[in-house]
Amino acid sequence: MTSIAAPPKRLLLYALPIVILLLVLPFVVEPYQTVLLSYGLIFAIAALGFNLLLGYTGLLSFGHSAYFGMGAYGVAFIVKYLKITSMEVFLLGGILASTLVAALFGFLCVRYTRIFFGILTLALSQVLWSLAFKFFWITGGTDGLRVPTPSLLGGQVTIALGKAQDKMDFLAHRYYYYVLVIFCVCVAVMWVIVHSPFGKALQAIRDNETRAEFIGVQVWHYRYVAFLVSGAYTGLAGALWVPLNGLTTPDILVWTFSGKIVFFTVLGGFQTFFGPIIGAVVFNYLETYAVGHTVYWQLVLGVVLVVLVLALPAGIVGTANRLFLKVRRAT
């Protein structure tokens, strides 16, 4: 894994222009583009959490829609039952709800690996989906639950009352920066996690479970904590997503949404740290573009996925890294 062990100093040098670009973006492009990018950044947080399991622990979950959905529905329940619209409460509630579910599901799932882990996560996530789908008096059924525009930073930043056109401005500027800051924090925290002894232990488990056990790594325990962190990240993404979308429906709990999260990660490259981030943002543009231009957008995405798996299994970032190394060796 030479690609992820790059020295942080040089990495910061690369990251700085990107962060500056992201900061000035709302003043340069149309609001629609910033909102679109917000979706991409939110999905990137989910993919980052998902990749802690796939890329670093070697567990392919086909049920991460459960945690994303719990984050979103957790927020919707806060609005519905507690009548609170503070974003900070949303985030706490979303993380709490998804971590609770991850604590339960993870407890059941991490005893297994490979295909059984994948199918068990899928089956459990479908339990939540069917509950959200059928208990319409609580969850609104297929109509979903509406979530109003929240107030940020403990009510310091809000939407101007009674101005309908302010909503777009709010989402494209204030909310975008909010998402951006959380995104940067999430990336930094995840970087620390995967480079900590804990992260190294996860990678040891991924590469050789038996050996890891022999040198004293408590495999079950580490996998469980990785599962929790992964679920909390995905739940946070769900909580950030729902005010942007304005509505949460059972669609985000269906297993095909889990497939999308897997797709983000493989598109970017799950053997790299930044792969899932790039993958999520690119996928979001790809999907929006495909949906906007053809009714057969699933066909486009499916072909991309098949070609990707057959021709570029290392994903965008993995392939770019390889090319970069090749060029450097040649010169």
Binding site: V262, L299, L301, G302, V303, V306, V309
Partner: peptide
Amino acid sequence: LITFGLLLILED
């Protein structure tokens, strides 16, 4: 993954 891609393709 490839069978998931196939699912999307066949659906459309």
